[in-house]
Each structure stands twice: as structure tokens, then as C-alpha cells.
Amino acid sequence: MAEIKPRISVEYAENATIVSFVDENILEEMDIRALQETIMSVIDQTERINLILDFGNVRFLSSAVLGLLIRISKRVYEQDGQLKLCSINPKIYEVFKITRLTKTFDIYNDLESATRD
């Protein structure tokens, strides 16, 4: 498992690439830009990626992160890949519901179910 300090860890499983957010809060513009660069490069390295974004550690985020997820999804779908989000804290899930992003993203309760599907 490769770790890109201190923002995300990347795990290459049998049929999926799992990117886990390490930080509890994702707020800073600089952090979001760094995340974007790193995750886009992970997407570009794998043909038709099956990308799972694990939010298990995340307790707070801003709407800028939602924008980042939209940009990530566009890149993944352009390359005929798949994107799944998992382990989203209930308070943050509420943010996805309010913005109706629950309708655009495939969201799983936990990493196990995201990996299995």
C-alpha cells in the first residue's frame, strides 16, 4: 500500500483501486488542489479504473470537495471506468443528500460492499 502523505492512501486490490482519505477535515483549497492532482494521476495510471473512494476517516468537508468529486467522476467516466464512494459518515451523507449528489454517485455503506459489487 502506497501512502501519499498526509492526504490519501492508495491500495491496489485485485479488481479495484481504493483511495482512502486520511484526514478528518478536508477544507483547505490547497489540500483540495493537491488531492485532485494526486487522484487524477492515479486515474490516469490505470486503464478503465474501478475507483473506490473511502470516506471512513472523514468527519468534515466543504462544498469544494463535492466539486472535486464531480471532476474526478468526469475523468473516470471519460475513461470508461467506474467510481464508487463508501463509508460516508451520516452527517456528511446528509450533505450529499441535500445537494442530490446521492443520485449521481454510487454510494456504498462500507468498503467490503463496494469492493464486492
Binding site: S62, S63, G67, L68, I70, K74, I98, T99, R100, T104
Partner: peptide, 20 residues
């Protein structure tokens, strides 16, 4: 930001979250 193509735009959700 919840309607039509706006759903796929990266920005425009801040005010909605404040109001919610």
C-alpha cells in the same frame, strides 16, 4: 445546483448548504 445539468457542475453548492 440540484437541477438538470447543474448537478454535474463542480461549483454552486455553497449557498444551498448555507440555506439548508
Amino acid at each position: 445546483p440540484r437541477c438538470g445539468e447543474n448537478l454535474y457542475k463542480p461549483g454552486g453548492r455553497g449557498l444551498l448548504l448555507m440555506c439548508s
